[in-house]
Structures are given as structure tokens and as C-alpha cells.
Design a protein around this nucleic acid. Structure first.
Lengths: 204, 204
DNA sequence: GTCTATACGGCGATAGAC
DNA sequence: GTCTATCGCCGTATAGAC
């Protein structure tokens, strides 16, 4: 049973994720997915009836992956300081490893908001599950900032710099990939500091 | 000479901007642009040789618009406090009026970074022109934060919430557009406060 | 399950009349 | 400058052999 070869369906999923995440629904080509999976174009339709269905499968998977991290990080009882540290570290890491991910999600949210929300709802992710513990913890530690602002500001600062990678790389680091990566890494520390500095202004 | 009717070329530009900004290069259709401009599809090719050329015209225009704001806001001699206020106010306003703009730019940066950088370079925008005064002012007022971090964090927090509008609208405000807009408006104040709170932690 | 061949429609682009 | 008609390609999807 120990096969080295992935089954066809898995090969398709892997290839499709790569192409869809990089190019988006409109930009992706079934041919490119087939080539990357090392199979024939018509096999794609054999396993998944249409491009749309294949895309949905990928999007669900991506949403699930992102969301599951959210949950574990925002558990009850964890201090704000540790929440921020964990959150920033994890997401910066993930986005650095998958530089097309932020844009893919952002793009899909605008392109087809209803479809995104639909898949998101099916995904067993419950936003309340991390909003409530966060709200509770903020109050407990005496921070008067609204949890919405807190979470949105934090997310913004971790996602944005990756979404504009080519621009930053070019204009801040003269096109040097290493310098850019070093900078993104340094943000694990600096964003954390920035947020904690900000928070101290909300201490009651 | 006082014509009410726009000339054809302007009608095309307006229609094309609307469609391209909403759907992106791959998602946009020449037919839709023609319909929106109230003209025939082949006229598009008469004025602009190809879809690509039309797209470039739009992208240049958009880049120019965004960039020119940057410059005026980051003038020398303006206090950090006022820079932040002006910056946040202006950009939140612009993005609220053009909710597809953030995604369009972000998407294009990833899709064709070289093309974007090329057009950006032709646009007479010089990033140094606002980095230097900012750097100077931060030092003058005794803030030890790196200008890169400052500008990226500020940009992040103004752009991101608009780029994920459908999600926020749905999950924070149960789909209510008015509430979402009110929230975005409230961020003019809250982001300013957040940043100034953060900055006070960098005071030497 | 996997391949080859092909149908079918959509889209960018051109030709040519007015 | 603006229109109608049409070309030719490309991309999704299906038919059918193996």
C-alpha cells in the first residue's frame, strides 16, 4: 500500500492549486493544470466535471487551511501578547511561503463574494469562536480598543506587505529577493512591537 | 465648443477603466467595454490597437492618480501627526469611493510586476520624494521607527479593509452596506489614533 | 482510467462598406 | 469615424477508442 506515486486526483489537486492560486479563476488554463499534473486535459473533466467545480474544490481547501490556523491561535486564556506573537509569526510565515496566497484570496473575495462566503460558511469556521475569546481577553487585560479594529489592523499589517511584494522588492530593495525576505522576516518582530506599542495607548 | 457629449475616446477610457478596474485584465471583455461606452466593439480597436494597449492606458492613468496624491501629502515640513491624518483621510476616502481599486492594483502587481513597475517608472512619481521628507520629519520629532515600517503599516491599515469589503460586510455587519461604510469612515479616526498610540512607544 | 480527436462557443482582431 | 460581417484562435467540454 505504500505507493510513492500520488493518485491522479491528488496530482490534479496539487497542480490546480498551484495554477489557480497564482493566476486566479479567469487567468488559469485547464491545459496548464493538466501539463503540471502530467496528465491529459480531458482527465480533468473526468475527475471534476468543470473548471468551476475544480476551482471550488481548491478554494474550499485554501479557505479551510487559512481558517483552521485562525481558530487554534485565538483560543481562550492566551494572553494578548501571545496571541499577537503567535498570529503575526504564523501568518507571516505562511504568506512568505505562499506569496500568491494573499492576492488569490483578496481577488476571489472581490470577484465572487457570494461564492466565497458560501464556501466559507460550509467550512466549519466560526468567526465568533475567535472573536469572543479575543474580546474577553482584551477586556480582561484592560485594553479599550474595539476587537474589530484590533484584528483588522493586525491582519492588514501581516498580509499587505506580501501582497505588494514585487513593488517593495523593487523600490525598497532594488530587486533583491534576499533583502526583501529578510525584511518580511524582520516584520515578525517589528509588527509585534508596533501593535504592543499601540495597545499600551488603550490601557485603561 | 461647449459640448455635453464626451468624445468617443473619453467615453472608451471611462468605460474601460470601470470594467478593467472591476474585472482585471483577464476577466475584462472588450464587448462589455464597448457596451458600456455605447459604441461598437471594433471602434475600440480603431482608437487603441489592442486590448493590451487599452489596458496599459488605463493602468497608467490609475497609477498616476494614486501616486500624485502621495506626493502632495508627504511634503516637507508637515508634522507627522498631520501627515498621518492627511494620509489616512485621503486614502480611505478614495478607496471607499472606488472599492475595486485596491484589488485591481494588488492584482496587477502580482499578475505582471514588470509591466506595473515599467508604467510606474514612467509616471514621474519618485518614491524618494516622499521617503526623504518622512524620514527627516520622523527623526526631527524623535521617533525611532524605521520609515519603511511606518509607511507600510499605515498603507496596510488603510487599504486592507476595503480590499476585503464583502467579507467584513457579511461577517461583522450581517451584510449591511451602511454599517460597513460607517465603520470604514470611523477608521479615519481610529487608524489615526492607533498609529499615534504606536508612535508614542518609539519616542526617544 | 486514460488517451486522441473533435465539437462548440467566445473573444480579440480585421476587412470593408458607408 | 462608425458600423456590419467575418475570420481565426483559443479554451472548455464531450465522444469514443483502448
Amino acid at each position: 500500500m505504500a505507493e510513492k506515486e500520488l493518485h491522479t486526483e491528488d496530482k490534479i489537486i496539487d497542480a490546480a492549486r498551484e495554477v489557480f492560486v497564482e493566476k486566479g479563476m479567469a487567468g488559469a488554463r485547464m491545459q496548464e493544470i493538466a501539463d503540471k499534473a502530467g496528465i491529459n486535459k480531458s482527465l480533468l473533466h473526468y475527475y471534476f466535471r468543470s473548471k468551476e467545480k475544480l476551482f471550488d474544490a481548491i478554494l474550499s481547501q485554501v479557505i479551510g487551511g487559512i481558517g483552521s490556523m485562525f481558530g487554534t491561535m485565538m483560543q481562550e486564556g492566551v494572553s494578548i501578547e501571545n496571541k499577537v506573537k503567535l498570529f503575526v509569526d504564523t501568518y507571516i510565515e505562511v504568506f512568505q511561503l505562499n506569496p500568491f496566497l494573499p492576492n488569490f484570496i483578496l481577488n476571489e473575495i472581490t470577484r465572487n463574494p457570494d461564492g466565497f462566503i458560501e464556501l466559507f460558511s460550509r467550512s466549519s469556521i466560526e468567526p465568533q469562536k475567535f472573536f469572543e475569546p479575543l474580546d474577553k481577553q482584551l477586556k480582561l487585560e484592560g485594553y479599550s480598543i474595539h476587537p474589530h479594529d484590533f484584528i483588522i489592523n493586525t491582519l492588514s499589517m501581516t498580509i499587505y506587505p506580501v501582497a505588494v511584494k514585487p513593488i517593495l522588492k523593487r523600490f525598497l530593495f532594488d530587486g533583491d529577493e534576499q533583502q526583501y525576505n529578510a525584511y518580511i522576516n524582520s516584520r515578525k518582530e517589528s509588527v509585534y512591537t508596533f501593535i504592543m506599542n499601540a495597545l499600551s495607548g488603550y490601557k485603561i
